[in-house]
């Protein structure tokens, strides 16, 4: 039986490998991102030559100057792909990691912006990941902007979101239109169920007659990699995730 996290990791892996996107030679993974980390290890262990910099790896951490080095690398354009999420994400791919209600999150406080206000503008490609796909997360307009989805001329920016992966579907992002487009549906979801759980407007209505394509299952080879070597690489950094998804402990 395929775990939802395994399908999400495989979906992110195929976005990473999308030949139409800018090349991903160096991928960085920040805090609390076990599914994106699993996707990156999967890509690497499938044999693709990609450099992974995992900020929260305790042993063998690639940085000798901590996160400052990550941000300096990104500032130079030497990180090709990063992952971000948000307590709220809106239809223009604005991210809110601050909170809801009056500034700074007087109603519900989220953890804070981390490096998003910098990384989202500095990396050529960002994959947005948020497992909870609900009206409270995917909103018409975020209450606060940690990091903007698109920028006007005169604001230095190397790239935008490539896609938004949730627990229900995959959306692709079109930066020119500043809009998402439904790309695939996870098992059990329909165009209508996704529409009902999404607070922002998006494209993809042309799918609705025949149903959007399903999100691909991981292949047997991918599953074997995820359950073996990928899990082994992640045990130290994400012990709770590995225990929950793969029933493995360090």
């Amino acid at each position: 039986m395929i775990q939802p996290e395994e399908r999400l990791a495989a979906a992110i892996a195929s976005l990473i490998l999308d030949p139409a996107a800018p090349p991903a030679r160096h991928i960085a993974v920040g805090a609390a991102s076990p599914v994106p980390a699993a996707a990156c290890w999967l890509v690497r262990l499938m044999g693709h030559p990609v450099r992974l910099s995992l900020l929260h790896r305790r042993e063998g951490n690639p940085f000798t100057e901590g996160s400052r080095e990550l941000f300096d690398l990104a500032g130079q354009g030497r990180i090709d792909l990063f992952f971000l999420g948000g307590g709220q994400i809106d239809g223009q791919a604005n991210l809110n990691l601050i909170g809801t209600g009056e500034w700074p999150g007087r109603t519900v406080r989220f953890p804070g912006s981390f490096g998003s206000a910098f990384m989202y503008l500095m990396v050529p490609r960002t994959i947005l990941f948020r497992e909870e796909h609900s009206l409270r997360v995917l909103v018409p307009q975020v209450d606060a902007v940690s990091a903007p989805g698109v920028s006007p001329p005169g604001h230095f920016r190397r790239g935008t979101a490539q896609a938004l992966v949730t627990g229900r579907c995959v959306f692709r992002f079109d930066p020119a239109a500043a809009r998402f487009r439904l790309a695939s549906l996870h098992p059990g979801e329909t165009a209508n169920s996704v529409r009902a759980a999404t607070g922002f407007d998006y494209d993809g209505d042309d799918y609705e007659k025949d149903g959007a394509p399903p999100t691909a299952d991981p292949t047997p080879d991918q599953l074997a990699l995820l359950r073996g070597p990928v899990c082994a690489e992640m045990l130290d950094t994400y012990p709770e995730f590995c225990a929950r998804v793969w029933r493995r402990s360090a």
């Binding site: 989202y120 903007p148 230095f156």
Partner: peptide, 27 residues
Amino acid sequence: TCPAIHTMLQAAEKGVPFLPLRGLLGS
């Protein structure tokens, strides 16, 4: 935001009054 804190400390480390940083516009 993380790199802003690093940059403000780096300015103090160098003894200069400020340093520039990319990003942040629109946040």
